[in-house]
Nucleic acid binder design. Structure first.
Length: 482
RNA sequence: GGGGCUGUGGGCCAGUUUGGUUAAGCUUCCAGGUUUGGGACUUGGUGACCCCGGUUCAAAUCCGGGCAGCCCCA
């Protein structure tokens, strides 16, 4: 059963996560790094199809929440990019510049506020045009100076960015909460990745934002990875671009804007590492490119008959919306099992002589070991089983996260929590400027980060700051991160 | 940001210390045969020294630079 494989994974997830992650990317044929460009990669069909399915989930949800799609240029004129001062400071060191064209240099867009805001200025005249909620899917480019890692830290980010404009600050802040809800609905409820919605400290916000809310997700090695973030831009960009509207009294005001950015490539990294096991990938049923694989088991005599039955079953499953394929290759069944398990297919159906006689197929579910039988008549039950499958993945991930957030009352306790590869929940002086020094101490001494405060729930601090001893204003989460 | 290690067929790797014959092995792949209920066996075949420059009669091997990857520290 656990015979050492030739093409399977040669390390265990819990023993050497980073090697496990590299192997799974290559061996499951998700991505290929052999174009040898730092920070860039080739997405192979399995990854591309999964990402496409994730795009659909997010876009459907955004559209439900009144967003409309747009497509913006891949390039930004230098003048636009430099319009908002803190944005310039934050992003220009990371810009890929294109050769001067005419008078102007062009940047490969690192994010698109400086494309959307000038268009808001043209599209919005009065409060009646608001709110304006737009998004695009596509790539942005950031010349990351740190070490890059496949899917996790890349120079090309494949994502959706939503850019919204409102008449009031209250509506913009409500949008930030709506974005958190979108992350909850898709990333957590659908894809089974739980997260902490965390308002970042002032020193760690998006360049140009009033504040930033990130979603922190646990990796198996205990480090946090930031998943979709949402930003209250306030009036910073609208002021920089003179994007105004007339209010109900006819008076001109600046727009209030927000931005939300779920990165598909990064979320894929979390899906792989959260759900995967030592056999390989486990994709949630809702996004698995192949949801069910049929393995016909035959010999020279009964081959035609069994393939025919397999095809019939495949047609039936496809007709009820279950993405199904048949592996009719000449490999032996055992090899096929390993192959499709490595690639994360939720359900496997075996059909051979036995199944034809009993009119029941053998069903194997990717996340459990026992096989069961399922009457061919009741094959549509797979739909419910798929939902159950996703629920199981989600619950397992939730348990993992819950066990990893630990209250710490003293600095010593916090140090131990971090050493134990967990996240410490501590009382802290402040996430405004005054607290930055305490955060720097934590970073220097413990090599961990103050991630921020919960954004969707008020937590009352008690007692003193864990570092400086001044009265604590906030409860913050401290952990290592990618 | 600082330091270290590595780069050989599609994948894993031997050979590099001490430069010298036809660059070995496993796996994949291709063709044939026997097989097919948890990674089959067999015969034959294809396929490689990261890039640029230097040293030398001679470079996978030594030197410099580039590119890429991995690890450790901040």
């Amino acid at each position: 059963m656990t015979k050492k494989s030739k093409e399977g994974l040669s390390v265990k997830k819990e023993e050497n996560f980073s090697e496990w992650f590299s192997q799974i990317l290559e061996k499951a044929e998700l991505i290929d790094l052999r174009l040898n460009m730092k920070g860039f990669m080739v997405f192979r069909p399995l990854a591309a199809m999964t990402i496409e399915n994730m795009f659909k989930l997010f876009e459907e949800e955004l559209q439900k929440k009144s967003h409309k799609p747009t497509l913006m240029p891949l390039v930004i004129p230098e003048a636009n990019l430099k319009q908002e001062s803190s944005h310039v400071k934050g992003f220009t060191p990371e810009v890929f510049w294109l050769k001067e064209i005419g008078k102007e240099k062009l940047a490969l867009r690192p994010t698109s506020e400086t494309l959307y805001t000038p268009m808001f200025k043209l599209w919005v005249r009065s409060y009646r045009d608001l709110p304006l909620k737009l998004y695009q899917r596509g790539s942005v480019f950031r010349l990351d100076t740190k070490a890059t890692r496949p899917l996790i830290r890349t120079r090309e980010i494949i994502w959706i960015e939503a850019h919204d404009a409102f008449a009031t600050k209250a509506e913009a802040e409500a949008q930030v909460q709506e974005d958190i809800n979108t992350t909850e609905k898709i990333m957590h409820q659908k894809l089974g990745i739980p997260f902490l919605a965390i308002k970042r400290p002032q020193w760690d916000k998006f360049p140009g934002a009033e504040y930033t809310v990130g979603s922190d997700v646990f990796m198996p090695d205990g480090k946090l990875i930031q998943q979709p973030s949402t930003h209250l831009m306030g009036q910073k960009f609208s002021k920089a671009f003179e994007a105004k509207f007339k209010n109900i009294k006819g008076k001109e005001e600046y727009l209030w804007t927000t931005a939300y950015g779920p990165a598909m490539s990064r979320i894929l990294a979390s899906i792989i590492s959260t759900h995967g096991d030592n056999q390989g990938l486990i994709f949630p049923f809702c996004i698995a490119p192949t949801q069910t694989i049929i393995i016909p088991i035959y010999n020279a005599q009964n081959k035609n008959k069994i393939i025919k039955e397999s095809n019939k079953l495949k047609e039936e499953l496809n007709s009820i919306g279950i993405r199904t394929e048949i592996d009719a290759s000449e490999k032996r069944p055992g090899e096929k099992y390993h192959y499709w398990e490595l690639r994360g297919v939720p359900f496997r159906i075996e059909i051979g002589e036995k199944e034809l006689k009993t009119k029941k197929v053998t069903l194997s579910t990717r996340n459990i070991k026992e096989k069961e039988t399922l009457s061919i008549k009741k094959i549509s039950k797979l739909k419910e089983l798929g939902i159950k499958f996703d629920t199981q993945l989600k619950e397992k991930a939730e348990k993992f996260m819950k066990e990893r957030v630990i209250n710490s009352k003293t600095k010593k306790e916090m140090i131990n929590v971090i050493k134990d590869k967990k996240v410490a929940r501590v009382n802290f002086c402040s996430t405004d400027k005054q607290g930055e020094k305490c955060a720097e101490i934590i970073e220097k001494e413990i090599n961990a980060e103050v991630r921020g405060t919960l954004a969707n729930k008020k937590e009352k601090a008690t007692g003193k700051c864990i570092i400086c001893g001044k009265p604590a204003k906030e409860v913050v989460y401290v952990g290592k991160s990618y």
